[in-house]
Amino acid sequence: MMRLSTDEMARRVAQDIPDGAYVNLGIGMPTSVANYVSDDKQVIYHSENGILGVGPAPAPDKIDPDLINAGKQYVTLLKGGSYFDNAESFAMMRGGHLDIAVLGAFQVSATGDLANWATNNDKFPPAVGGAMDLAVGAKQLFVLMRHTTKTDEAKILEQCEYPLTGAGVVKRIYTDLAVIDVTGEGLRVRELYGDNTLAEVQALTAAPLLPPL
């Protein structure tokens, strides 16, 4: 089967980000999507800590210790960018002002439930950050994740086993095997990479998949 690398997965999401979009990229793999958005598109990145117009990492001698992204990495501000407080930043999220959010996930259900903030390990302190706000608020929520766990267990399930971040919030799933839309009829495969077949991908998915239209 053809499995995309993490860079190729990020590149695939980047193709679907339109010119002029306001976008929030989650911590981890989603952050790297920005590296692959082509230069002919103008995309404005939002960071939950209060930035619109996030730019690339600064040169070492240009670091501003206050200017970080949600992953606590140093960033820069593009021309035309702005700063604001937490309440305004989350008003942008909940209020439906962001066009696209890209988040990682532990599990996604057949109806678009998202689980990405806690496992069922009680010894480990939970952390949620801005994930629940992004999940309910962005106009379109894309999930970027590997199709299965490291031990080949399905991450796309009839119902999530881990605690939910949001119910019925995911619009599209980008994995290393395929692109899958969450629709009213169920999970519909939008694209299979390489020679991957529906049957092969279905075998690694614990919810029914509909064939591409």
């Binding site: 939950e48 909940r94 949620v128 629940m132």
Partner: peptide, 30 residues
């Protein structure tokens, strides 16, 4: 543990003299 936007709104509500806010964040979750 409080979702980040809810943390902000609970703080903002206190400062603005509100008893609280209805937020969609966390609805249907633990």
């Amino acid at each position: 543990l409080v979702p980040q936007g809810t943390l902000g709104e609970r703080i903002r509500a206190a400062g603005a003299g509100l008893g609280g806010v209805y937020t969609p964040t966390g609805y249907g979750t633990r």
